[in-house]
């Protein structure tokens, strides 16, 4: 089982029936030249890459943008195109008056699998008191949070709000809340691995090919910046494969990660097993 824990479906044809919708999403997300992607074609891309399931991440900054980049109802429409391949997360702008109510609806009625938050875009630190009700809902309902962490390519996203160490209070105060520090918290990967080793419910993903080829980039990060045995022996149960598609093609990101000379049990964990536990999908 291979799971891509970090993909963005903003270009899918299912939700871009007119050009203005597509332009809004591209501008908000900071993807400028990519074209519309038919969902059927995306499914072929996943099959070609050997990816069994993709987690789809929405984003909601409606308090300032007027509407979500992808609403929770739109996410359900996408997931319904192929429920066996797509796992949809919820998005919520915590500044919305109905934020708590909408998040509960997204989990209880729409059955979305987790929550995506980019606090850099929201200009909120993880310990902002207004986020507490959101964390409490996720913890109570056993839904994981995918936090953007570190460097972000979205416009207006100061990285200081998403430095990995800033999430430590969340791990301390909500010990049963599973959350992922996306992009390995790059460039603060050392802070991220501290969080992975210390807190049982903190995870990270590999969606961080910002330079060089995926093969060279992953090799350098995990074998030169780190010792490969750190990944294999210290946080092998915490790192999940993620591509950040469409910022980087999932097939090439996956091929680069597969070049790492990992033990088979670590490969199984990184490419699927850890995501299954993070998502709460264990049998």
């Amino acid at each position: 089982m291979v799971i891509d824990i970090h993909t963005h479906p903003l270009l899918f044809d299912e939700i871009n029936e007119n050009r203005d919708d597509l332009l809004f999403r591209k501008e908000q997300f900071g993807v400028f030249k990519s074209g519309i992607v038919p969902v059927d074609f995306e499914l072929r891309l996943l099959e070609d890459a050997g990816i069994d399931k993709a987690v789809l991440l929405p984003e909601d900054y409606s308090a300032e943008a007027g509407r979500a980049i992808i609403s929770n109802d739109e996410m359900v429409r996408i997931v319904n195109r192929s429920p066996e391949h797509f796992i949809g997360f919820a998005g919520i702008d915590p500044r919305r008056e109905d934020a708590e109510k909408e998040l509960i609806r997204a989990f209880d009625e729409l059955k979305l699998a987790g929550l995506k938050l980019n606090l850099s875009r929201l200009h909120m630190y993880p310990d902002d008191s207004s986020l507490a009700p959101i964390y409490e809902i996720c913890e109570k309902k056993n839904k994981p949070i995918m936090f953007h962490a570190g460097y972000s390519w979205e416009p207006n996203t100061p990285a200081k709000y998403s430095e990995p160490i800033r999430f430590e209070d969340v791990a301390v105060n909500y010990p049963d809340l599973r959350f992922c520090l996306a992009h390995m918290g790059w460039p603060w990967w050392e802070e991220t691995i501290m969080m992975l080793m210390k807190y049982p419910n903190v995870y990270a993903d590999t969606s961080m090919v910002y330079m060089d080829s995926p093969k060279n980039y992953y090799s350098h990060l995990f074998s030169v910046n780190m010792n490969l045995n750190w990944l294999q022996n210290c946080f092998q149960d915490k790192v999940m494969f993620g591509s950040n598609n469409p910022r980087f093609r999932h097939v090439r990101s996956l091929a680069g990660m597969k070049e790492l000379p990992l033990r088979q049990d670590v490969r199984d964990a990184v490419f699927g097993g850890n995501a299954i536990r993070f998502l709460g999908l264990e049998g």
Partner: peptide, 8 residues
């Protein structure tokens, strides 16, 4: 930067 994606 003009794409918002990585060249590969």
């Amino acid at each position: 930067p003009t794409y918002g994606t990585c060249s590969g």
